[in-house]
Design a protein around this nucleic acid. Structure first.
Lengths: 229, 229
DNA sequence: CCGGCTCCTGAACGATCGTTTATTCTCGTG
DNA sequence: CACGAGAATAAACGATCGTTCAGGAGCCGG
């Protein structure tokens, strides 16, 4: 039952190849839209071997979730040692096999399995810590909602990742590209530029925002649906 | 070939019932995960009638996209007459059958069909107009990227909608709930509160944000992956 | 040479899928 | 009443799905 380590002269274990192919295939077609046969073809094995190693398609999907979460956690730990930025997924973009994981996340985040939910909770906790550090050094502004602000910022980042196709069409920036590539980084500026402007100066007049916020809290019979978006 | 209008004493046309059931079923299980038989059961008809009226499952999905886009466009027009807020989807939340459409959007936005892409482009254009108005009246701050800022804000809103399940778990706010309900509105404050704080005061020290932004534009060999997230 | 073990496969099974076909039901119209 | 047209269905078809099963290929200690 131990993990196979028969990495002799050639490539990865067949089990690892199946898992990587599943991550790529699920990312490309969605979990429901990707068949076991397609995953097997991508790994160069028979469909039966996929079931033999993972038991079922659903278990394969769980294994993908666990693996993606594990890699992200490891990259995160390395990023902490190197001095983390604000983007909890930045380390993935540069990592060797990070991009398929990013695309897998982008495709499966909306489905919401238990494993990725736990990962998200963890990332929110990390982000809250990073944000608190930034506040202490004066680079970030203090907040009345430390944990909620961390959650919102992470959800915005991941939401943009999930809508990556629309980000690319509307702005020309591919968030699942390797930002080490200068061309991709320049294109990503169409997203990060206005984002940084918003992060720097905000969007609204402060008094206006405060009034809207105060209108939320007590909750008498205020006006009709005028959400802040 | 004309639209059936046999709405006599009872409810909607069977074709309309099928379309509404498809919207709800696709929203609940995803398009790939929902079968024609399930859609038919929800509409109280036979599976064959679904194909008889729409030709194929894919055509049914396109019809759902078209219908959702049409309803949103109409609600949008009414919202303009009533004086629009910043949330382009606010009108949907209060509308009679708006919630299923919202959940359909949340589930299918990531798939990216042509019809919803056109709708998104349209919504970005509208948002750019609203933002420009806000800048003129002094409620919103000016920007160097008018269209990109509109796109980013819309993508953040829709991204949070797509990740609604995580928003609910992390913050306790359900963005697909009827915000006319005071309890749901209060819960949504856990999302809109930090959002409005960010919109009001921003996130970063302005000089720090400007330095990060300038590091993006020219693009010499700057440091490794430290995205703004 | 041999039995056993692991990795792996070809072929098939039952279920479910989207869709087709033939048929019945409903009902306004001449 | 006769009749044609659309609404609606039951039943089945071929395809594909996830999964099972029996066994082959290669290797290793005896």
């Amino acid at each position: 039952m131990a993990e196979a380590v028969a990495s002799g002269r050639d490539d990865r274990t067949a089990k690892a190849r199946i898992r990587d192919s599943a991550i790529a295939t699920f990312a490309a077609h969605g979990v429901e839209g990707a068949s076991v046969r397609l995953v097997a073809e991508g790994a160069g094995v028979s469909p039966a071997l996929v079931i033999h190693h993972f038991g079922s398609k659903e278990a394969l999907r769980r294994a993908c979730d666990v693996h993606v979460a594990a890699v992200i956690r490891e990259q995160k730990r390395e990023a902490i040692a190197a001095g983390a930025g604000l983007d909890p997924l930045a380390a993935l973009r540069g990592a060797a096999g990070g991009l398929p994981l990013l695309r897998y996340l982008a495709r499966t985040l909306a489905d919401g399995t238990e494993e990725v939910a736990e990962l998200l909770d963890e990332l929110v906790g990390d982000a809250e810590g990073y944000l608190a550090e930034g506040v202490e050094t004066g680079l970030l502004k203090p907040t009345a909602y430390p944990r909620q602000r961390a959650a919102v910022l992470l959800l915005w980042s991941l939401g943009a990742l999930v809508l990556n196709e629309h980000v690319r069409r509307l702005l020309g920036a591919d968030l699942t590209a390797d930002l080490g590539d200068p061309e991709a980084l320049a294109a990503a500026g169409a997203y990060f530029g206005p984002v940084l402007e918003l992060y720097g100066q905000g969007l609204m007049d402060e008094g206006y925002a405060r009034r809207l916020r105060e209108a939320l809290d007590p909750g008498p019979s205020s006006g009709s649906g005028q959400g802040p978006g």
